[in-house]
Design a protein around this nucleic acid. Structure first.
Length: 275
DNA sequence: CGCCAGGGGAGCT
DNA sequence: AGCTCCCCTGGC
């Protein structure tokens, strides 16, 4: 079963740093794991071809990739005078804010601090391979689900150093313990507003403002979260000396953050252009 | 070998 | 709010 999707680029989504369980499978083809789901997508020009069953597409991937949201309407909110933001949005027009699993996002962004995307991806693959459930895709190949809080909570705090997490190992193990003991209630977090959820997440050891915002944006789909990291900070200093017009973009700042982040990393004026 | 950066955070004042 | 110190790897 194949499904064609427009205005969508898995490569851009991957490089925008919101999703780490993805890798290339040949030219323009990518494999992605979400929860216990496995998907292959092929980029064909402006179109993406999804290889999955109809039911799985309707019941899972449509929501996961936020396919029913019209991202053009976000782009149209951008000020005509803001050439930088328009260029960034145009450059990253295949990006969507995924609806990823909350626990996966907590762990992923604990690992992300003082880390780069390539190594974050490797770290996550390591813990999945070591502690995630073994699964089999349609090709008969083995892959791994994401480790449960229970599986990680029983480890020694430095056990994940073997997975290349470094000092972040204890953050992940302690967070898993908080979830298992019920101090961090994942189900309850899903029902909270952005400010409430952010406040709760900040209670986790190793979670600061930036990581909490990433979790809110990618794990709870709070589009008003606007994570500010070193790249975003530099972009804001360069292009928004009077401050980013948050009031104009109320409710969709997170989408714009992704356009800016991807543009800075992969686009003109970004790291790729500086090399 | 040292230095530094990679999507920070905790613990101070 | 700002400052200092801390943590681990990989690249140069």
């Amino acid at each position: 079963m194949e499904r064609i999707v427009d205005h969508f680029s898995l490569a851009q989504i991957c490089q925008s740093g919101q999703c780490f369980r993805m890798n290339a499978r040949g030219e323009n083809r990518y494999a992605l794991i979400a929860g216990s789901h496995y998907l292959e997508v092929e980029q064909q020009g402006g179109k993406s071809v999804f290889y999955c069953e109809e039911a799985e597409f309707e019941d899972f991937w449509t929501s996961y990739f936020d396919l029913e949201t019209d991202y053009v309407s976000y782009m149209e909110k951008i000020s005509p005078d803001d050439a930088y933001l328009r260029a960034a949005a145009e450059f990253g027009s295949g990006i969507r804010i995924l609806r990823q699993d909350l626990w996966e996002m907590i762990v992923s962004f604990l690992i992300s601090q003082q880390n780069n995307i390539v190594r974050i991806r490797r770290c996550i693959e390591n813990i999945c391979a070591g502690y995630g459930e073994k699964l089999t895709n349609a090709r008969g190949e083995e892959y791994h689900g994401f480790p449960t809080p229970q599986a990680l909570a029983e480890l020694e705090e430095d056990a994940l150093m073997a997975c290349n997490l470094g000092y972040r190992s204890k953050y992940v193990v302690r967070a898993a313990g908080s979830v298992v003991r019920g101090e961090c209630d994942l189900e309850a977090l899903l029902t909270l507003s952005y400010p409430q959820a952010r406040e709760e997440l900040l209670k986790l050891f190793g979670v600061g403002g930036k990581v909490a915002d990433c979790i809110c944006l990618f794990g709870l789909h709070h589009l008003e979260a606007f994570p500010v990291d070193t790249h975003i900070r530099q972009a804001l200093e360069k292009h928004y000396r009077q401050g980013f017009p948050v009031e104009r973009y109320q409710g969709c700042q997170g989408v714009l953050q992704q356009y800016i982040f991807y543009y800075e990393l992969a686009g003109a004026g970004g790291a790729a252009a500086k090399r």
